[in-house]
Structures are given as structure tokens and as C-alpha cells.
Nucleic acid binder design. Structure first.
Lengths: 210, 210
DNA sequence: TAGATTGTTAATCGATTAACAATC
DNA sequence: TAGATTGTTAATCGATTAACAATC
């Protein structure tokens, strides 16, 4: 088994669950507990861990502090990662106001928008004209960017970001982005997820009667 | 092959791509075109369609208008679906301000929050006290809800929603929610997705030199 | 018709799950 | 020690992909 996106997502979930367990005062966990917290099977947990050389104690389970540290290192939490946002609309603004990134080593350093009106309302974080993106990203060697612009603008924005040196994208525009093979793109599409929930609620209603 | 979440997500993506093709003036598509637009293989497209009895013409491909209508019916776009939001923070507010749901037959009818301060600022949409959720949902037979509250509050909020009759959840809280087996839950976790992008950008940098 | 594309069946691939020996 | 849990290998499962006959 090669390392795979779902596997890394599970690592993040384990880490979140471990934070919570730690806050509750726990010191050790078994693969069983973690599996239950995250919604997978114990063998999946052990398998994931063994892929990254995370080991426990054959009777006492895993040490929570050690696990949190190791998972943090794997997931890049040892460094602070600078991230830019493009698009100061609803989503972009919500992201900029969100306080939780910092403690995960994620630092939203700037927002860019093509609309001068939005450049004004610097609600805590500076909103710059889109033309300044390239210089900014190059100067600070930013690698990660968030696209929160309408779908028609998304590819254009991506091209600018790529030319500036961005290597990874979190994309909120409901469109498939084209980029070089080594570009990392994760998509978040709220509408699609909602539509999906609606589908399965209706499908279950039809199947299970009433 | 049974119908599976990824398959339904692909149907939504096909639909979105078809809208765009239609706007560009196209009338027909081949499985090849759709596959390219969505980022899958042509055989995947045909396989998905055959699962739902969506047929084309063995030489002329598929009729775009027919496909859009059929996909809309499958995905429940024939009816308007009422949805409530719980939590009037950054995400909840962004959702309420978002204009794109309406044309997909999704109607955000109300928002609920436990904080009286947030109940005031009714920015377009009413924000009610959490206690009124149950009556509201029951009266209007709302089936779908969005959870946009902090993780510590999420399970509690879910329990209220379930008791009111909610059957499907879009959950923004970074926690695994517990509910009856027939409850549909989709999770969106921005932090986790960003962390994932960061991981793979770093992993690629290590692998592919530099 | 000949060529191209669908619809469907079979093969492949990879992830998840189960099982169990090692060992604390 | 005896019992419990890990770490890892093998089996299962299901989705994706390929192939190709049907047919427009």
C-alpha cells in the first residue's frame, strides 16, 4: 500500500482525536479507542501507523503525547506555513476571520482581490490588489494558496498563482482546475456536498419506507 | 457495482460541467468530453450513466439538455429543499450570504444560534434562538441541516436536530458526529484539507528534488 | 456502408479488513 | 506467567479501468 490521500486525512483525524483525548486527561490510547473516535477499524489505525513507523507498546497501546508529536511532524506542523487567500468575498472573509489556523501552524498572511471596493475593508487582514500577488508570493516564497473567487475567474487566478510559485491550492470554485502535474489541488464544494446529503436522504427515504 | 457516494459526487460534477458546455452553445457531448471536463476516464462516465439508465446515441453522444434534466431529477433538483443553518459565526454567515443555492433548488430558510448577540444581526436571513429550532423544523418538516458551530457544541446541536426530525447533516465542526444509522452526514473540514495540501506539497518537494 | 461511440462485461487494481504470530 | 494488544501478512472486497461487441 502506497501513501494515499485518504490515509493522510485519517492521520489528521487521529491527531484531532488525540488532542481531545489529551484534554480529557488520557495518557495512553489503544488502536481500538482511536478507531472508534475517528470511525474506522482498529486494524486500519495500526496499518496507517505502521506505514509511518509509528509504534506503540504491545500491551500498553500508544502514548498520546508521542503520537501527537510524531503526527505533527509528519503533517508538517513543525514549521509555520504561510498561506495566501485570493478572493475577499463571503468565503475569503470567513477564512480571514477564522482564528483556528494559527495553532495548527497555518498563517494566512494576505488576501488579494481584483475588486477595489473589497480592497478597502481590511477587516484585520490586508486585502491587496490582485496585481500585487506575484511580487508578494515571490518575495515571501509562499507555496500554498486558497482560491475563493467565482468559477469563471478561478483558472485565470490559478495561472497567476502558479507563475508566482504557488505549489498547492485549496480551491473553493466549483470547477476543475488545470495545472502542472506536480501541482497539489484539493477542492471544497459546499453546494455539491449539500446536494449529496439531499440525494442520500431522499434515497434512504425511498428505500426504507415512508 | 452499487451506488456509492463518489458516484453521486461525480453526477453533480457532470451536471456542473454540462451547464458550462450548454452556456458555450454546445448541444451534444461525448463521454470523452465530459470525462475531460471532470477529470475521470470516459468509461467511468459511461459506467456512471448506465447505473442510472442515462443513455445516449451510439454515434452522436449524449444530448446536453436531456442529460441536465435527468441528472437534475436524480439529484433531487425537481423539488426545492429547505435547509436550516445552526451557528451564525463566520461560516454560517458566509453561507447565509451566498446567493448560489437558490438556482440549485436549495433554500436556506433560517439560522439558529445560542448567542443572543448574534441573533440580532439578521443580515438578510433571520437568526433565531436555538430553543426555537425544534418547533420550526417540525412545523416546516425540514429534513436537512448545516452545523456550523464549534466542535464542543456540535454533538449537542446534532441531538436537538435529530429529535426535531432532521435526517441529513452538512457538518463543518471538526469532529465525528454520532447519530442513528440512517442519518446522513457529510463533513467539511477546511483546516484538514489545508493540512492535506501542505503535506503533499512538502512530500512532492522531498521526492522530486529541490 | 464504414467509422465512431456507446453500453456492458470482464480484468485489474488498490484499499480495507481479517487474522494471527510476536511480544510486552 | 497469562492475557491483551500490537505489527504485519494474507484475504477480501469493491471501485476503477480496459476491452469489445452492439449499433447508430
Amino acid at each position: 500500500m502506497t501513501i494515499n490521500k485518504n490515509c493522510i486525512i485519517r492521520l489528521s483525524r487521529y491527531k484531532n482525536a488525540l488532542y481531545r483525548l489529551k484534554n480529557l486527561g488520557f495518557v495512553k490510547v489503544f488502536s481500538d479507542n482511536l478507531a472508534d473516535a475517528v470511525g474506522v477499524l482498529p486494524s486500519q489505525v495500526r496499518k496507517d501507523f505502521s506505514l509511518f513507523g509509528l509504534t506503540g507498546n504491545r500491551r500498553g497501546g500508544y502514548n498520546i503525547d508521542e503520537l501527537i508529536e510524531s503526527l505533527g511532524n509528519i503533517l508538517g506542523k513543525d514549521k509555520v506555513h504561510e498561506v495566501i487567500v485570493v478572493g475577499a468575498g463571503n468565503i475569503g472573509t470567513a477564512l480571514m476571520n477564522y482564528k483556528g489556523f494559527e495553532q495548527e501552524g497555518i498563517n494566512l498572511v494576505a488576501c488579494f482581490d481584483i475588486d477595489p471596493a473589497k480592497q478597502k475593508k481590511a477587516s484585520g487582514m490586508p486585502v491587496f490588489p490582485l496585481e500585487e500577488l506575484k511580487d508578494f508570493v515571490k518575495q515571501r516564497s509562499v507555496r500554498i494558496g486558497i482560491i475563493a473567487v467565482p468559477d469563471i475567474a478561478a483558472q485565470q487566478v490559478l495561472d497567476i498563482m502558479i507563475s508566482a510559485g504557488i505549489k498547492g491550492i485549496l480551491n473553493f470554485a466549483p470547477i476543475r482546475l488545470r495545472g502542472p502535474e506536480d501541482l497539489v489541488v484539493n477542492n471544497i464544494n459546499v453546494e455539491l456536498e449539500l446536494e449529496n446529503v439531499i440525494y442520500f436522504v431522499n434515497a434512504l427515504r425511498k428505500t426504507r419506507g415512508k
